[in-house]
Simulated scan of single mutants.
Amino acid sequence: MRLLAPVLAAMVIGMIFFVGWANRARLRPIWLAGCLAATLLALYGAQRGVIRFQQGLRLSTNADTAFTGLRSEASTDFPLHLGRALVSIPPNNQPGRVETPKIGKLEFVESPDRHIMLHKIQSEDQPDRWYSRMRQEAQQADRSEVFVFVHGYNVDFAEALKRTAQLSHDLGVQGPTVCYSWPSRGQVLAYAADEATVSWSAPHFERLLSDIHQRTQVHRVNVIAHSMGSRAALEALERIYLKSNQLQANGGAGKTIHQRPIHQLILAAPDVDAVQFETRYLNPLRKLSQNATIYFSRSDRALQLSAGIHAATRLGLAANFLELLDGIEVIHIGSHDLFGLGHSYYGTDPVVIDDLSQLLSQDVSASDRPLL
């Protein structure tokens, strides 16, 4: 009993601090789109207020939908699962950090005062209502804009939401934030499966881009696509480009090609064949985005491995050949991650985040951004 009393006292004190800090945690709503994964029936642990999903996704409050790394069997009439998520950012979160519990710090469960937490997912089965709310939020913001993030390989649904929230917070996004979550398996050894799936998801991202552009009528749609997610973005633009050309060839107005759906397109460490980018994607990108920026690093170990697998140079390793092209800015990130893969600098390096913030908020050209 003597041993038990201090333990109980520590638990009570811990709960008091937890409640106090929880009230100060900042909550950031995230719009969900293209959560192209099979939904699961959840097992409820009602006494604990926790929903436990397959593959370990746990939420601290109710959610009506969960997503895996499998492809969706959603209706072909509207293939996207839409919804909203609530993600909390701890009050002292450092830029570029998605804090999770660490055993070395004796942290065994998530706490909103120390970790970025996913609290709630709410699906939306009425697309008109989803886009209407997005339009209203964009109109109420200081800048009429929508920020869209497309994650890369080996990212599960919860991780995608947390990274999107962290980016939105660190970049100071004013308008609605959209997480486009294609069904990555979220497994290191599932590279081939993710590679096939990201191309499969491109038509859905095309639909999302077109709908945001047409239904919300916001002035700026800014897109950051990371790694393999860059393929979904580029293939979506290619599809819009080819459809517009076909429309013009058939005597149509070809309006889509003249109304660029993307204001700022940022490809961060793109896992894309460099030669294929130049021959296949370059024209659609220049036609359909007002501004395009590519961040690359010759020290990116993940892309070095990808280059070996494909026997082809990746754009995120050697984009410098594009430096002289009008409408495209190329930023080289030097060696900075001595012990990691050097592949996630877009969201983890505070200097890169500051550079992205200037680009997105002020449209400052690379030559006038002294940070990199």
Rank of each mutant, 00 (worst) to 15 (best):
L57V: 11
S357W: 02
H263T: 08
R298Y: 12
T348P: 00
S72H: 01
E137S: 04
L86Y: 04
V7I: 14
A292C: 15
L267F: 08
L372R: 09
Q139R: 14
G316K: 05
L282K: 08
H204T: 03
L36Q: 06
E73T: 04
T76F: 09
S88H: 06
Q214G: 00
D77A: 13
Y153K: 05
V352N: 09
P261N: 12
L359Y: 09
L171S: 02
S227E: 02
W130K: 02
T197D: 14
V155R: 01
A25G: 09
L288M: 07
H204Y: 14
R114F: 12
T293N: 02
I331A: 10
H263M: 01
L8A: 15
V146S: 05
S201V: 07
I331Q: 10
M228S: 06
D170R: 01
A249W: 08
L371K: 05
R369Q: 10
D170Q: 07
L27M: 13
I262E: 02
A63Y: 02
G83P: 00
I51M: 03
F149N: 06
S365M: 12
I116P: 00
M15F: 14
D273N: 14
Y153G: 00
H204V: 01
Q358W: 07
W31L: 12
G347Q: 13
L3T: 03
D64H: 08
T164Y: 08
N92E: 12
H258K: 08
R133K: 10
F277P: 00
G252S: 08
N245M: 13
P79K: 03
D113I: 00
L305F: 10
G152Q: 02
Q47G: 14
Q217F: 10
E159S: 14
Q264C: 08
